[in-house]
Amino acid sequence: MSGSDCEKRDFRTQFIRVRARLSVTSLGLIVAALGLWLSVPQQRVPAQELSRVLFEKESLYHYVRVVEEGNIRRLQFRRSGIDFEESAINIRNPLDFPLHYYKLMMAGFIHCPNPQRILFVGLGGGTLVRAIRHYYPNVQIDVIELDPVVVEVARAYFGFQEDSRMKVYIRDARVQMNRLAGQGARYDMIFLDAFRGGYIPYHLTTQEFMELVARLLEANGVVVSNLQPGFASYHYQRRTIARVFPSEWAYGRYGNVIVVASRKPQNISREELIKRAEQLQAEKKFSFFLPEVAQLATSGGDYIRQGPILTDDYAPTDVLRSIPQD
């Protein structure tokens, strides 16, 4: 055997010994680490922190889901494999708003601090309706909801309850609103918050619909609309509202923009809105700070004012909703 063969054999022998020692050492480290991990009390995630589905059902209009994560219970509509969050509530503190846009919608009370009658279009889980009932216990509230399954879910999972001053109409909004208008019903505030898996049904966006809203409002009444910016549809919706209502204030910028519009021009400054919010905060003791919402107020300016509006003959909201804006 040559010297080089002996050197190769010695090298292989040493390599095998070193690898064996490393294997034993690695195994020892793994065992030691495992023993240490087992000896330390493990923190378990509480069951209430895990997301779980409480309810699922396909109705005539939506695929409805109720999901709970910790203290937060969420109402979702599933469309095209995507779960759109429609409502949420803190089950331990129903006055704590999990969704920021609820606070923005409360800006309507800055413009109408003492309403007597309120109409809601779109119930969802009823979180906002419940809060308003708490802060304004003597107000008459009417709610219109298209889907009876949504009403069932609001009652069973979100603590929503009708009372002598709160009535729910299970019907298409325009049909029911026409009936209410024919009966001479008038409201100080109308909240528009009807979504169908990420978009507003087109017949609740048009000029004709906004004119129906105006018919249902008292002379000094306001309409509070929940809109989503970032798409071409937003500018069409803002222009349509402005065509019918001479005065409009917007709250928020991303995710949701709440537009408060009135039948009569409101010659009021942002400073006065903040002052009103401070007075309401002192009176109502809101669980959030309403003056912070008032700080977000802008009088128009965040949409393209020139262009077409939505009408019953032209309302391609499904197409416009898919066109992003820079």
Score class of each variant (00 low, 15 high):
Glu86Gln: 15
Leu38Ala: 10
Ile170Thr: 05
Val257Phe: 15
Val143Glu: 05
Phe120Gln: 03
Phe245Trp: 07
Val45Gly: 01
Gly197Thr: 01
Gly35Met: 05
Leu192Pro: 00
Asp10Asn: 06
Gly3Ser: 11
Thr25Cys: 15
Phe289Val: 05
Glu49Thr: 12
Thr206Gly: 06
Arg215Ala: 10
Arg270Trp: 06
Thr298Trp: 10
Gly221Arg: 00
Arg238Ser: 04
Glu292Ser: 06
Val260Ala: 03
Glu49Gln: 15
Gln161Asn: 15
Ile200Thr: 03
Phe15Ser: 06
Phe209Trp: 08
Gly28Asn: 10
Gly125Gln: 09
Arg186Cys: 13
Lys57Phe: 15
Phe120Leu: 07
Val67Cys: 08
Ala107Met: 13
Glu85His: 10
Pro113Phe: 01
Ala232Tyr: 14
Pro98Tyr: 05
Ile132Cys: 08
Thr13Trp: 15
Leu27Tyr: 14
Lys264Pro: 04
Pro229Thr: 00
Arg305Lys: 15
Leu310Ile: 08
Pro316Trp: 02
Phe289Asn: 13
Arg263Thr: 00
Phe289Asp: 12
Thr127Ser: 06
Ala282Met: 07
Val244Trp: 03
Arg73Leu: 00
Ser51Ala: 13
Gln325Tyr: 05
Tyr202Asn: 09
Ile91Tyr: 12
Ile323Thr: 04
Ile141Val: 12
Gly125Ile: 03
Phe209Ala: 06
Tyr199Met: 11
Leu204Arg: 09
Leu60His: 00
Ile82Thr: 14
Arg215Leu: 13
Glu58Gln: 14
Arg130Ser: 01
Ile309Asn: 08
Ile309Ala: 10
His111Cys: 14
Tyr303Ala: 10
Phe158Leu: 08
Leu212Glu: 10
Leu22Ser: 12
Ile141Pro: 03
